[in-house]
Structures are given as C-alpha cells and as structure tokens.
Amino acid sequence: MILAQVVSDATAGDTGVGEAIVFWILGPVALAAAVAMIFARNAVHSALFLVMTMLSLAVLYMMQQAPFLGFVQIIVYTGAVMMLFLFVLMLVGRDSSDSVVEVLRGQRVAGALLGLAFALLLVAGVGRTMFAVPSVGLGNNAANGNLTGIGRLIFTDYLLPFELTSALLITAALGAMVLAFAQKKPKAKLGQRAAVVARLRGDRISPLPGPGVYATANSVAVPALLPDGSVAPESLSEIIEGHEVDEAPRPPSDAHSLTGRRRELEAGE
C-alpha cells in the first residue's frame, strides 16, 4: 500500500513523503553497501555487497516510475550478471590479488583524494544547477503503463539501436565462447597396449580416489578419506582450495576384517 502511495506520488514531478522515506532509507543503504564492496577483503563479499546496492537501486527505479527497469535490474543484473561474477570467482579462486599490500606507491592516497575532489565537484555542480530545475514527472507518458511506453519507444524511435544491441549480444556471446574455450593440446593417441605399459610404468596403477569416499561431507572441497581414516590429498582437484578436515574417528575394530593391510601395519608397530 505504501508502494502504491509512493508510485502515485511519483506521477507528479516532485517526490512525496513516502518516496522521501524510502529514498532516505535505501539511498544510504546503497551507498554503504557500495563503500563496503570496495573495502571487503573477500571478493565474494564484495559481490554480495554489490548485489545489495543493485537491489536498492532496483527499488529506487521502481519508485521513479520505472518498474520495467527495476525488474530488469533485479532479473538481469542481480540475477544473471552477478551470478556470472560469482561463477567466475569460484573458478578463479582467491589469489595474491586479494593481498592488502598496495604495490603502487601513493595510489590509494591519490585515488582517495581525487575521488573526494570528484565527488565534491559533482555534488556542487549538480546541487547548484539541478535544484532549480522543476521536475515534470512522467504522468502523461505512463498513461498506458510504463512497459507499453518503453516498448513503443524501443520499437519505433529506437528500433535501429535495438537491433544493433541484438547483434552486439550475439557477438559478445560468440566472443566469450572463443575466449573462454580452452584449446587442449592434442595428445598422441595411445594404443591399448601402450596405455597399459604407461600405467604399469607410472607411479600409480589404480584410479584416483573419488571425492568424498568415507567422508563426513559431500563437498568437492573436502578430500576423501582412505579406509583407515587418513586424508587422500590426491582426491582433491588442484584448482580447489582444500579445507582442513579432521581425521575421521577410528573405525570399529571389526572394520579391520575388511583389509589385511591394517593388520600388517599394526604388526609393524
């Protein structure tokens, strides 16, 4: 109900009280989340803070009579784009780039000073000019609904740019495929006999242990446990950072019947 009130206010040029309340809540939230994003040491946290900012902005869009944009913001940006970011973060993992030590001398100080100056200039410029401009509001344009208005504009005045964006998207998709496709070096195809010889001559005859065997967790980041409860590091993918895992509790004594090896070890002890 409050939202409806807010939206009806917004058809007029100026903002109503409801919208002001929403703005003064969500605006600082968006700003704080943005600041937190650049200060968060973990990239995943940064992404989540950015999601927060975007969601706030989506609400602000809706309040400004742009419900279509607001939903697109939520679906495309926070839904698709940010998920893509998280995927890539998971693939890439953490590395030295997250170190807090600044390499470039004076970069942080200069960046902060310039940013401050830039913000002051923007605020001063906008403040001096824009407060004097009366706001018209979208009352007439939104007569048939925001979506209808935007659709009419896109398919009439902005038809050519719109078609161009479709070409752009296709190009981007193809480009991403080309860039992300890792060309494997073609290996010499081994015959059956050669494969057997290579395996017997190699350092491991048996297959690598699968993840999570005898494990207490089903995450790929948790290494498998060997039957005697010790960790099998080769069960972890090299690009995934392993998590510390406690040694599993000793198996019951009858488990020894499963393997003769254990007994030999104990005999050795």
Binding site: L104, Q107, G115, L121, L122, G125
Partner: peptide, 21 residues
C-alpha cells in the same frame, strides 16, 4: 599498471569537470 592509467584518467576527469564548472 592499468590502475595508474585509470588514476590519470580520473585526474583528467576532475580537471575537465572543474574547468566546466
């Protein structure tokens, strides 16, 4: 370093905006 270039770009932007204002 890309970030140095970005810094100089921001500096240029500040200058331009300041000049405009």
């Amino acid at each position: 370093f890309v970030r140095s270039y970005a810094l100089s770009m921001l500096g240029g932007s500040v200058f331009v905006v300041a000049a405009l204002l």
